[in-house]
């Protein structure tokens, strides 16, 4: 069944490709829109742009200040994901290996964070970040994402570590290594598959988050890509071509990264979901 290409397989291929074409229709509509001038948009909404105009892209890139937004998004995403990997794996290692009611309760306490609606603590957290003097800063966002995404990260790591045998570390500890050394040299390398998942799931979430950076970074000059694009779209709402160009430009970096790393991204999304 997995080896032969039969007439039935061909029919299936046609069906699947047709599905993909339908799936891509919104993308087609958006991309062609970005290449059209207002007159073409009004009269030929679905045809291919003829002739294509690229003027919208330059305007959109400039007006939405996307270059600095990309930098802001990258900085915040990379730092938050690093912090999550370090804090999450260390905590999960403890939670998975320490027996007893207390550590189990702590594990449950972390899990509670997965179902808490963010709106519940939104205002007190905002006050807190303000009191810490971190509003409008990268640090504030990094702290926020690290805290918000820790429950899920701890959950993924703990499940994985529980499935690892304890013997490796025990052997290292008997050899005189400290717990930290054993973790860094023995355990952490074993966690590579799940670390990939943690990295990808968190990076996609943080990169795409809109509401929090709007609240915490609005007006600071450190806005991330979705915030800049949202403001841009609101400002030029009636100029569809320009808006479409802005959306295409904003989605392009992450789509490119995805295309290059697609095997790892897709695997990352699926492989960690266990526990």
């Amino acid at each position: 069944m997995r080896t032969r290409y039969r007439p039935r397989t061909f029919v299936l291929e046609i069906v699947m490709v047709a599905l993909a074409v339908a799936f891509l229709f919104p993308v087609y509509a958006l991309v062609t829109l970005a290449f059209k001038d207002p007159e073409q948009i009004a009269n030929k909404p679905l045809s291919l742009p003829d002739p294509p105009s690229v003027g919208s892209f330059g305007t959109a890139w400039e007006s939405a200040s996307l270059s600095s937004a990309l930098l802001n998004s990258t900085l915040i995403t990379v730092a938050s994901v690093l912090a999550l990997i370090v804090l999450g794996s260390l905590a999960a290692y403890f939670l998975a290996r320490k027996a007893g009611r207390l550590s189990y309760s702590l594990y449950i306490l972390f899990l509670v964070g997965i179902i808490l609606p963010f709106q519940l603590g939104m205002i007190p957290l905002y006050q807190l970040v303000n009191d810490l003097g971190l509003l409008g800063t990268y640090q504030g966002m990094i702290l926020f994402y690290t805290g918000i995404q820790l429950p899920f990260t701890v959950f993924l790591y703990t499940g994985f570590i529980r499935s690892l045998p304890a013997d490796y570390t025990n052997a290292a500890l008997i050899d005189g290594a400290s717990h930290l050394q054993a973790f860094v040299h023995v355990i952490f390398p074993l966690l590579r598959p799940i670390t990939g998942t943690v990295l990808i799931l968190n990076a996609v979430h943080i990169w795409n988050d809109f509401f929090t950076p709007l609240l915490y970074l609005g007006g600071s000059g450190r806005e991330t890509v979705p915030v800049r694009v949202f403001a841009f779209v609101n400002e030029y709402t009636s100029d569809y071509g320009l808006v479409a160009a802005g959306l295409v430009l904003a989605a392009l970096p992450i789509l490119l990264v995805f295309l290059v790393l697609q095997r790892y991204v897709i695997r990352g999304f699926s492989s960690g979901l266990k526990g």
Partner: peptide, 14 residues
């Protein structure tokens, strides 16, 4: 916290 590991990220107090 601000003076710690993240200080290199820059960014003032708005």
């Amino acid at each position: 916290a601000a003076a710690g590991a993240l200080a290199s990220c820059g960014g003032g107090n708005s």
